Amino acid sequence: MSDEDMYRVYVLTCHFNALFEIFNKYDMYQSLRALGSRAGIEMIDHFKDGHFQSSVLRRTYERAMEACRRKAAEDSIPAALTA
C-alpha cells in the first residue's frame, strides 16, 4: 500500500468514527424511528460494523497512519488528498 493509500485509509477511518459518534451523540436511531423513518434501522448495523472495522484498522496500522499523517502535514502528499 502506498503512503497516499494509507493516508486515505487514515482519513476514511477518522471520518467514519466521527459519523458514528454523531449518530450516537444525537441518538439518531431513536430520532429517525420516532419520525417513522426506516433510515435509522437501515443505518445502525452499517455504523456499528463500520466503526468496529475502522477501529481495527486504526489499531493495526496506527504507526503507519501516523507517519502518513505527519507526511501530509509536511505537504509531501498532494493537497487534493488532504482536502
Rank of each mutant, 00 (worst) to 15 (best):
S2L: 05
S2H: 08
D3W: 07
D3F: 05
D5H: 04
R8D: 03
R8N: 08
V9S: 08
V9N: 07
V11W: 01
L12M: 13
T13Q: 03
T13L: 05
H15W: 06
H15V: 04
N17Q: 13
F20W: 11
F20I: 12
F20N: 14
I22G: 06
F23Q: 00
K25T: 14
Y26D: 10
Y26Q: 03
D27M: 06
M28G: 03
Y29Q: 06
Y29F: 09
S31E: 15
R33S: 13
L35C: 15
L35V: 08
G36V: 06
S37K: 08
R38E: 14
G40A: 14
E42R: 06
E42P: 04
I44A: 13
H46C: 11
F47W: 09
F47E: 07
K48A: 13
K48G: 10
D49H: 13
D49I: 13
G50V: 05
H51N: 12
F52E: 15
Q53G: 02
S54K: 02
S54L: 01
S55V: 00
S55T: 10
S55C: 09
S55H: 01
R58A: 00
R58W: 00
R59M: 15
R59N: 14
R59C: 14
T60H: 09
T60D: 11
T60R: 11
E62Q: 08
A64F: 05
M65E: 03
M65R: 00
K71Y: 04
K71H: 05
K71A: 13
A72M: 01
A72C: 03
E74D: 14
D75C: 07
S76F: 09
S76Q: 15
S76R: 15
I77E: 06
I77F: 03
A79M: 06
A79V: 02
A80E: 04
L81Y: 01
L81E: 00
L81N: 01
T82W: 00
T82E: 04
T82L: 01
A83V: 07
